[in-house]
């Protein structure tokens, strides 16, 4: 039956309402997982706290498994599921910029709002920087338009690019994720910090 909007089972407005509640839930879970603390987020890079990796990869493999099983049961048609188009060049540059900002500021865009919502000053400053960045990007768009559109690959997925079934890819992803969880927990014990 899904996706709900494309098949006109729910309206755009209902969709926005649902997005509102899901957004609140997402923020609540981020805060509960401790993602409003920049020290916890930065811990990912220094190895003393791998909560970020565990939460996001658990989320990813849960969603991937869920989608594939839903598709298997005929509850969702994967052809209609939105796949973000890939621009490889800008993705690589953007990933580096985002990673640098993440380790410098201790937040990613979502968690900075989470931190700002509970009144953290560093998160508020981070949100301010975010808007300055958006402004510079928008005003200077002609300068980086070519970079922004570079390496266009369409709605490609890794399983399509490797010519393997999505199920096999998700299985490999789960193996990698479980392996990473194991390494992450080992690192947490190896580089412990008392207070952060």
């Amino acid at each position: 039956m899904g996706p709900l909007i494309v098949n006109e089972i729910i309206s755009q407005n209902t969709n926005l309402l649902l997005a509102f509640f899901i957004g609140i839930g997402f923020g609540f879970v981020l805060e509960q997982a401790g993602f409003s603390s920049s020290r916890k987020l930065a811990g990912m890079f220094y190895g003393y706290d791998a909560t970020v990796l565990k939460v996001f990869f658990t989320g990813a493999i849960t969603a991937a498994l869920g989608l594939l099983f839903f598709s298997l049961f005929g509850w969702i048609e994967m052809d209609y599921v939105f796949v973000n188009p890939t621009y490889l060049g800008s993705t690589i540059v953007g990933g580096i910029v985002m990673g640098l900002g993440f380790i410098l500021g201790g937040f990613c865009p979502g968690t900075s709002f989470c931190g700002a919502a509970i009144g953290k000053i560093d998160a508020l400053v981070f949100v301010g920087g975010l808007f300055i960045g958006i402004f510079i990007f928008a005003e200077g768009f002609p300068l980086w338009q070519n970079l922004y559109l570079s390496g266009f690959m369409g709605d490609i997925t890794i399983s399509k690019a490797l010519n393997i079934s999505p199920g096999l890819f998700v299985f490999l992803l789960i193996l990698v994720a479980v392996g990473m969880f194991w390494v992450a927990e080992w690192a947490e014990k190896k580089f412990p910090r008392e207070e952060y």
């Binding site: 493999i61 498994l65 594939l68 099983f69 298997l72 199920g167 998700v170 299985f171 992803l173 789960i174 193996l175 994720a177 479980v178």
Partner: peptide, 8 residues
């Protein structure tokens, strides 16, 4: 998780 992955 691995079992579900295997099934899928």
């Amino acid at each position: 998780l691995i079992l579900l992955g295997l099934i899928i």
